[in-house]
Design a protein around this nucleic acid. Structure first.
Lengths: 145, 145
DNA sequence: TACAATTCGATTGTACACAATTTATTAGCT
DNA sequence: AGCTAATAAATTGTGTACAATCGAATTGTA
């Protein structure tokens, strides 16, 4: 019933459902995010912008677990769409400050329906959601070494 | 303490830690997978190949939640590396049969250490791992509509 | 004050992901 | 049999991800 290769079976992986679930959920977001002209990564970036208004690329990357290779082109796209501005810091020219524009803040109103609509897609009980949230954050913290 | 925008805060998202966790874990796999010349996606593809030996691209995609747009180039890479062959089915020329080669099966031996090494990276208790596994599979099932 | 080390963002290159379209083949229907 | 619909991969185009490297600016230190 069990052999030495059991640990290499897809069904026995913990990481694979995590990876698959993550992708499926992002796919579920797409129809709602299309309406406000954002991709999922742009959406979570805007979440940070809505809260912080002004932030460096470095700090943004730490919140989002993304590096400049991903953020630089993404922020240029958001700038082109008019949702953020990108300006070098006066105090330290190495630092690039990202700031949310009025259009970016206006988008927040339209984005309000996204979490509501998505909530209906992910059918988990309150206890399951809480357990999942706790375990994922524990994993993330343990991985920041 | 709470406002109408609470649902749009990164900290209140359930999907974001899922997305971040998934990426971080894939990043953790990299050093181990580099040793056997596979990316993470190629690794889970080989897991299916090790179990099934022979399978169509369509069935492979259903196991992995991936479509031909991702699988076609990935399988061509695995073919170039000598781990699989790609042949049209005699019964139905539309179907492409992927088969694992001897080199592909040999790789399984070298891959055995990967789950062992990764287990040490993901510091979860047995109960947490089991709960996570259950919740993720419930989500995946509920999303297959 | 020189200057080596560090930091920050941008760039480059590789590899996914997935929607949308295309092409070839097969199945279903009359 | 003839034609339409459906199916399976491949292709195209856009957008991440991330390692590695680069270049400019700043810091720490002798």
């Amino acid at each position: 019933m069990s052999d030495k290769y059991d640990a290499l079976k897809l069904d026995n992986q913990l990481c694979f459902p995590l990876y698959a679930c993550s992708k499926e959920i992002v796919r579920r977001y797409k129809p709602f995010l299309d309406k406000i002209d954002l991709t999922y990564t742009q959406y979570i970036t805007m979440m940070v912008m809505w809260e912080h208004k002004s932030i460096s690329v470095k700090d943004l990357g730490e919140y989002l677990y993304l590096d400049s290779g991903t953020l630089t082109p993404l922020l240029k796209t958001l700038e082109k769409k008019g949702f953020v501005t990108r300006t070098r810091s006066k105090e330290d020219e190495r630092v690039l400050i990202v700031e949310v524009t009025k259009e970016g803040m206006d988008l927040r109103e339209k984005a309000l329906e996204v979490p509501a609509k998505m909530g209906a897609c992910v059918r988990l009980s309150a206890e399951e959601a809480k357990a999942l949230y706790g375990i994922l954050h524990k994993m993330l913290n343990s991985m920041e070494e």
